[in-house]
């Protein structure tokens, strides 16, 4: 008769893998294989360079010589001795403050018009979405420059009505606002999201309000807007982040200068000039991290205040 002791059983059991290796490898091999391209890309092309730029932001680095550690010097210069930085901040904040609300209002107005169930809606939706696909491109920025130049199409049209239009892009009083208009013109993406949000509001809410005698304006302010706040919040955060990061329109229309008189000097354009114009990679990295910080603070602030004005149904 063959018998086993407890000791035999323990000796024959394979060694238990560690907790960490069990988490990563217990039957998940195929999953990690599929994840690998993204994971490699994220580590090599996003996280790695981001961490490298964080380090470079504390250095003086011109691409030719090795980075020289300068501590907080880059950040101190930004805060105290860089007038162009202050100008870029001012331009960017004006651009964000004007373009985001205007774009959202325009997008919401059109979404509400489309939500009334007009004929050929898919066609119009595609047509109105088109600028969002093209708007950020170099070609559209070039076209915009032609439209708003002193002898451009806009002024030609204005001259028909006897108005002598200024040079919209070379006059510092108007140039930034021309870029704001270009941004608002790209309302397609938030419009589509607003339209989806409007479709989610149950029709019987409006019917109940109708029976209560609520006017269309009251229905809009007391029902549509509050119920749309989750979508407004989403669009607001995404569009604001996009506006802070805007680069192409300013780069093309001002031919990379941010002029006239720094009036279109977006923050990202200034960053680009410092990095690839003057090869001050350390300072440009510091600028990039300050922008990250601004966006992070704005986003955190938005989320913190959301509980007071965003209404989630469930």
């Amino acid at each position: 008769m063959v018998s086993f002791t407890a000791g035999d059983a323990v000796a024959r059991r394979p060694a238990k893998p560690g907790r960490l290796s069990r988490f990563f490898f217990a039957g998940n091999g195929a999953g990690y294989m599929f994840l690998a391209p993204w994971l490699i890309g994220f580590l090599g092309l996003t996280l790695g360079p981001a961490l490298a730029s964080l380090y470079l932001s504390f250095t003086d680095y011109d691409l030719l010589q090795s980075p020289r550690f300068v501590g907080m010097d880059n950040y101190v210069r930004m805060a105290t001795g860089d007038a162009k930085f202050a100008a870029a901040m001012k331009v960017t904040f004006i651009y964000v403050i004007l373009s985001v609300p205007l774009k959202l209002i325009f997008a919401l107005a059109l979404a509400m018009a489309f939500n009334r169930g007009i004929k050929g809606l898919p066609f119009y939706r595609a047509v109105f979405y088109l600028p969002s696909l093209l708007g950020g491109s170099v070609a559209i920025a070039v076209l915009w420059r032609q439209l708003f130049a002193a002898d451009g199409l806009v002024n030609s049209v204005l001259s028909v009505f006897g108005i002598d239009g200024p040079s919209w892009i070379s006059n510092p009083n108007y140039s930034l606002y021309t870029l704001v208009v270009l941004s608002v013109w790209q309302f397609g993406s938030p419009m589509i999201i607003f339209l989806a949000g409007l479709r989610q509001i149950p029709q019987d809410m409006y019917e109940a309000a109708n029976m209560d005698g609520a006017s269309k304006a009251r229905q809009f302010f007391r029902i549509t807007l509050p119920l749309l706040t989750p979508v407004i919040f989403f669009n607001f955060v995404i569009q604001t982040i996009d506006a802070f990061k805007a680069f192409t329109p300013s780069f093309i229309i001002s031919a990379g200068t941010g002029g006239p008189i720094n009036s279109t000097l977006f923050y990202t354009l200034y960053l680009y000039q410092e990095a690839f114009g003057f090869f001050r990679m350390g300072y440009a990295s510091a600028l990039a991290w300050v922008l990250v910080l601004i966006i992070a603070v704005f986003t955190a602030f938005s989320f913190l205040t959301a509980r007071y004005w965003v209404h989630y149904d469930e």
Binding site: D204, E207, A208, T229, H311
Partner: peptide, 11 residues
């Protein structure tokens, strides 16, 4: 009118 879905304003 009382609606099937109640139609209460959730906010």
């Amino acid at each position: 009118m009382v609606f099937q879905s109640y139609a209460l304003y959730p906010h």
